[in-house]
Design a protein around this nucleic acid. Structure first.
Lengths: 358, 358
DNA sequence: AGCTTTTTTGCAAGCCCTTGCATTTAATTT
DNA sequence: AAATTAAATGCAAGGGCTTGCAAAAAAGCT
């Protein structure tokens, strides 16, 4: 029995189906239910175009067959992904910095908020402008938008990227140059609050500890500077020290504090982890916090309340930040644009500044 | 000019293309290059079936058009996703617990390792057996496999899930009952090491602090028990205290320690965060660590080295754990099975146990 | 130049869904 | 009961890509 040559020959189905994945397809469900694929699709997606009786029957069958629709195919058909990519643009090689509890909290917040909108979260370390890894998932059509958690040194890159690809929201320091959406804490104000608090406690020689090449930190520094000059105190360059985020490196950077002492009586640390490192370094030299030196940190990490001395800090509500970022993203996805937003910060006074001696 | 009715009518293309997404399709590139879609596909994927000259031409055009292939479509065609879902099966509502630096480090490790294999990472909070959120992405065909970071109270659920869906790797306490792949630290050994260390320092009344309903913690407790009875000391039930992971709650749980004192002279805390909370709680009562009470924690969080007193702890290499998990997952994806593995732990002696008085 | 062999290309089916429109079936109306 | 309207279903095209196989083009031989 030879088939006519124009008739397509039966081809053995490629055996590609992943072992654990949904074994059934809509097609099979349709066959089982004795209806067309379209009806199954509509039944499952709650379309009013299908009779209630039919829907129930199909639902039952689908359930029994342990079926769940293939989102990949569904999204392709719908021209969406229901996924947002979250990028941590940090130095390649080490993700250690992420240890900073800030990142987790942010990630948790983003995950929660996006889940509310039924969006998935795709995590990436490689940045889109990374030479070696050509594309981020967003560009590969695997995400509807991108969130940059922190702009770090990549501010210009992010700006360019955002300009080309729309649908970008970044956490960090807003900047007139951007026309993309940036959500961030009011770092300037936070820096000022911290510094003013130290000044109010009678401290005069305040060390600034942080990497000012990072825009967020630069802003915190700006606040510091403002407060100092408002108090009529000239900033002493010797007291402005570079300290990286990574706690190990920060600890090493803080070693020089010993030599400086007693040239200063307070520290404003650009992050809580840095504050922790500084306290440890001072302790090594026999310098006591807050007796000899007052310290204020920045971030409000949970552990800050439980260390000794407990950390006075400028708290940024990461939870809130995540919520706002997602809000902006949704707006962006819907309307095509979203304005930047600055989030308020608050000073949490605990022991390390010396205001509360317990 | 009327069209014949059998001829499909021109239909306006649905305008679904996301604004920022790859604007071009292979089709367009093909047209630009004057070749067929297949040739473009082959050219871009490095097939040897295409002439080098043609490939270069196409590559150039694609580059100029800022084209990148739509992974969603590609993966659909290939019957894969190149994505692994990472689930944190923690109590719904709060992801706060994730603040525990352990989770971030783990996530970082997983992301890094999976990236090496060119896999993406999808984060989920909702578990597959969650009533309200019917399916995890894996079941929706959006991932090739699932990693559970911690089994928590869901051990049975995870076991069932793993049995039904293959391609599951879990971090946590291995168990004879499982036939799925579990990677975890040697918690029993770690618990024993910590306890033995305290005993060696001459401590006798050792508090165990942790939630033994969690299998990982139960194992750490088992190690504690073993060490105690090996030393000929009966475990005093009054000294076994329930403390949750969350640092705030742990702190509250630790408040009762004050009343117990001086009924004990050491603490083995099931996690570093709990240890931190305990130290803070003791300090409130005027009890000093390590003078009055020795403490050993578990995890090896980075900040542990920099707090006061610095934490003696059982360190588990999360980095290593992540690498092994991914290794297992790859094996699972390839061969369909992978054996469980137990990872070694090490004791890091610092100040909180009193062995090192600086 | 004519034929065989090897390279390159293109065709079209398939991955698993969604959805506009035509068609069938059921419910109403006169 | 016939005609009209409404409700439920199916058909087939389409989303952007891959790939087996057939067809075309180029290369190698005699």
């Amino acid at each position: 029995m030879s088939q006519s040559p124009t008739e397509p020959k039966e081809r053995p189905a490629r055996e590609t189906r992943a072992a654990g994945a949904s074994l059934t397809t809509m097609n099979e469900i349709a066959r089982m239910a004795g209806v067309s694929e379209s009806t199954v699709s509509r039944a499952l997606s709650g379309s009013p175009l299908v009779a209630e009786k039919t829907r129930e029957r199909i639902l039952k069958i689908a359930q029994a067959a342990n079926f769940s629709v293939n989102q990949q195919a569904r999204n392709l058909a719908l021209g969406q992904t229901r996924t947002v990519e979250v990028i941590f643009p940090i130095e390649p090689g080490t993700l250690q910095q992420v240890s900073d509890p800030f990142f987790v909290d942010m990630l948790a917040a983003l995950t929660d908020e996006l889940a509310k909108h039924e969006y998935d979260v795709l995590i990436t370390k490689s940045t889109p402008w990374d030479e070696n890894r050509p594309g981020c998932a967003f560009l590969g059509g695997r995400a509807d938008g991108v969130v940059f958690v922190g702009q770090g040194r990549h501010r210009a890159d992010i700006r360019d990227f955002a300009r080309a690809q729309k649908r970008v929201v970044a956490w960090g320091a807003a900047d007139e140059g951007n026309d993309h959406c940036v959500v961030g804490s009011d770092n300037i104000r936070g820096g000022r609050m911290a510094t003013e608090h130290l000044l109010k406690l009678g401290r005069k020689s305040i060390v600034f500890l942080g990497d000012r090449t990072l825009p967020e930190i630069a802003q915190r520094y700006a606040g510091y500077e403002t407060a100092m000059s408002a108090a009529g105190i000239a900033v002493n360059d010797k007291l402005v020290l570079n300290a990286p985020f990574d706690i190990e490196k920060a600890r090493r950077a803080c070693e020089q504090l010993g030599d400086l002492f007693p040239g200063f009586d307070a520290i404003f640390a650009a992050s809580d982890m840095i504050a922790l490192a500084a306290i440890a370094a001072l302790r090594d030299k026999g310098i006591t916090v807050p007796k000899d030196v007052s310290i204020v940190g920045f971030d409000g990490i949970p552990a800050g309340a439980h260390v000794n001395p407990s950390l006075t800090t400028v708290n940024q509500s990461v939870r809130r930040g995540g919520a706002v970022i997602v809000e902006k993203m949704m707006q962006l996805l819907k309307t095509g644009e979203a304005p930047s937003e600055l989030l308020p910060v608050e000073l949490i006074v605990r022991q390390s500044c010396g205001a509360n001696q317990t």
